[in-house]
Design a binder for these strands. Structure first.
Length: 283
DNA sequence: AATAAGAACAACCGCGAGCTT
DNA sequence: CAAGCTCGCGGTTGTTCTTAT
């Protein structure tokens, strides 16, 4: 015998449904999600109700507000520390949900993947360079901070800016993060940025490259390189390697680019967070 | 102005942990 | 103790919006 089941609604929520859900939470609190359907209030699963509440209806959410530079930096920092624990990371970002953080990260990864796949003309030279220290695998970046602050500027210029502040108000929440440090000398802990909680490893080819880092003819191995480039081979461009050290140091060396063209194609905000990340000793 | 590509956002699904019966 | 249920999390997919050509 077939029992006719109530049809379960899916897809976008209507305003009326939101209202019902809000009323339910007002009465009973954010729990007993399954009872919403069993009481016949909504044709939605408890799961769906909970998700809607958590992601859209909960008070104090920053809906429709882009991640500030500080938030971006914090997400990146925390992702390096916790991995893909979005719910945990979201607790450090008032007004942001795990879904927000997850989507932000996912978009970012896609951007990165796309950028890293895009070959750049060798004539483009990057001014902002990376030094690789073999014994201590961090990238030391010396760079013009003006290059890296696009979204920060954007954020500051927004009259409605709703940048997160509670972790600033409560520095104890993120004790390792120095958000006001202005010194344009960067230390990026590679393992955190590349693959959380993993030992940084270089392929044999990369190791060979690193060993030859002072070899003035190193670049010759990679075909034509614009003579206007740094040319001394002592520094690597900030290109792909910091995000993919196992596979792309070689490409890095030949992808020396001008900051103009390079950053035109690079995700606008990608380096906003690179400011004063602590070295591994601070972790 | 039309179209394609990319980015951002919203929602669903599967799984596992924890609680209740 | 085991089965069932609820909830929360992370991954994934689909849709809409924005930007570039």
């Amino acid at each position: 015998m077939e029992v006719r089941r109530e049809e379960i609604r899916k897809g976008p929520w209507k305003a009326e449904e939101d209202e019902v859900l809000i009323n339910h939470v007002k009465k009973y609190g954010p729990r007993e999600w399954s009872s919403i359907r069993s009481k016949g209030l909504l044709q939605r699963t408890g799961k769906s109700c909970r998700l809607r509440w958590v992601n859209k209806l909960r008070p104090n959410l920053k809906n429709g507000c882009k991640f500030s530079a500080e938030e971006e930096r914090l997400v990146i920092e925390l992702q390096g520390q916790f991995g893909n624990k979005w719910a945990k990371i979201a607790t450090y970002l008032p007004g942001r949900t795990d879904n927000d953080v997850k989507n932000f990260w996912s978009s970012r990864q896609k951007r990165l993947a796309r950028v890293l796949k895009t070959p750049k003309p060798s004539s483009e030279i990057i001014e902002n360079q990376v030094q690789v220290n073999q014994s201590n695998p961090t990238f030391d970046l010396k760079c013009d901070p003006s290059v890296f602050n696009s979204s920060m500027e954007e954020e500051l210029s927004k009259p409605h800016s709703c940048s997160s502040s509670s972790y600033i108000d409560n520095p104890g929440m993120v004790p390792f993060l120095d958000l006001v440090h202005e010194e344009p000398y960067l230390q990026i802990p590679l393992p955190q940025l590349v693959q959380p909680q993993q030992e940084l490893t270089f392929s044999p080819a990369d190791q060979e490259l690193l060993a030859r880092i002072d070899d003035p003819f190193l670049l010759d191995d990679f075909g034509a390189v614009d003579p206007a480039g740094p040319g001394d081979g002592s520094q690597l461009s900030l290109g792909q390697s910091m995000f993919d050290p196992a596979g792309s140091l070689t490409k890095d060396v030949k992808n020396q680019m001008s900051s103009d063209t390079f950053f035109d194609d690079f995700p606008a905000d990608i380096f906003d967070h690179i400011d004063s990340l602590p070295g591994p000793s601070g972790w």
